[in-house]
Design a protein around this nucleic acid. Sequence first.
DNA 1: GCAAAAGTGTTGGGTATACACCCATGG
DNA 2: CCATGGGTGTATACCCAACACTTTTGC
Lengths: 255, 255
Amino acid sequence: MIPPSPQLAVSTVIFALRGTGTDSPATLWLPLVRRIREPFKGRWALPGGPIRASESLADAAGRNLLETTALTPNYLEQLYAFGTVDRSPGARVVSIVYWALVQAEEAERAAEGENVRWFPADELPGLAFDHNAIVDYALWRLRNKMEYSRIANAFLGERFTLAQLREVYEAVLLRSLDPANFRRQIDATKAIVPTEERQSGGRHRPPRLYRYNESFDLADNGPLPPSSSPSPTSSSSSSSSSSSSSASPSPRSTP
Amino acid sequence: MIPPSPQLAVSTVIFALRGTGTDSPATLWLPLVRRIREPFKGRWALPGGPIRASESLADAAGRNLLETTALTPNYLEQLYAFGTVDRSPGARVVSIVYWALVQAEEAERAAEGENVRWFPADELPGLAFDHNAIVDYALWRLRNKMEYSRIANAFLGERFTLAQLREVYEAVLLRSLDPANFRRQIDATKAIVPTEERQSGGRHRPPRLYRYNESFDLADNGPLPPSSSPSPTSSSSSSSSSSSSSASPSPRSTP
DNA sequence: GCAAAAGTGTTGGGTATACACCCATGG
DNA sequence: CCATGGGTGTATACCCAACACTTTTGC
């Protein structure tokens, strides 16, 4: 008996910044897991898994992320559903992929082991399935969205300096920005507010610390519900009502 | 036996412009189908159906569209995957939704019948499932994308005047545009090129006809493969390899 | 000629970029 | 007092909305 519809899975592209605060520029990294069975046994792949009956897609992605890296993301958004027929040898799998941003500090203490390792986002090895293409698309979305939203904040902690925020932009967009103009552009958006604190200890004039403006979302995703943080949902439902059906004459609909 | 993963389906939001060339402003319309079984029997819903083993997601959406309205879209793009647990009473269904643009002229002769009808996009009745929310999101995407891409062309035929193109923008964005500035903005993009033809028969100075610049895509969707027009695919695959699995200790991956 | 739409020119205001300059701190 | 980055000022270029104006057709 052939399956009436393709298998369904969720995967996640997780980005973090590494090497912030050093002399060399910070870069994007992401965690991958080693496959322990065929196909592509031994190759690195995006963390992923099946979707449980009781959890939404975003919840499945969040759980996934937590189980792989023990991290909770500051930002989580659906990327795309990948479903070409040949993307998984010997099976038909449709993957709904999410992308996440975690802050550098947390990523430092992230789980890493024999089967989980962080890689620089633009020096990836040959991954399993179509995962290289998926990462490419995630990177494109990240860089695009960086220019018209405030997601950069998701890479940082509660308090940060403008230089740190600028470093995020420079690392992701791969070009240097004028500090003076950057300052003006940022506070023209009112997305962050200055605190009275300053960061001392540097060997220069101590910069002011800023925080998020809570009344702003990190990104405007339109009328979609904001992606919930990964807390387990409770409602459940069961079984049945499958659609077999007639051909062209009668138009169909599904949820 | 509970299903190992939710059911999978594809739905499509199809937009066309109606009332172009009349005195009153043109408006957005979309076709809906009437549900002929529970749940939501009798309610209007987005056209949709299951995904066949041999077709990609975009192909499924295109087939769907063809079967419902006998139209082929000028533009087809994935919208979003909807998968909250409670969106379909008595079942767990994940819907991958596409949106499409068809040209007005074609939409006029589109299939319409007892169970298929066109509605104005912003005066919809209460639809089945979460379909009202889906249409809202599709409208948001359409209006957004209208401002930074050339998808407006997908509403028009091979040759068109600038006034017609402007009418498309005005109908979608719901505001009037200055003809002079519109002209400059459009041809600054080099997305359309003037022909030597003019449209006579009006009672004014005959406007020049334009055509697409073939070397431009309608939208920049990054490294994603451009959505194919709905021609049947041939490759197929069969069966098996399901993932049961262990809990948190060992990180997982899926296609 | 007149109405109406096609198409061009001009101008003022806002925004971005480049860069000069001052400020505050550690050494 | 000097090196270094924090932070401000400003001149220029560019883009965009508004609107005056010319052109070309049908009647």
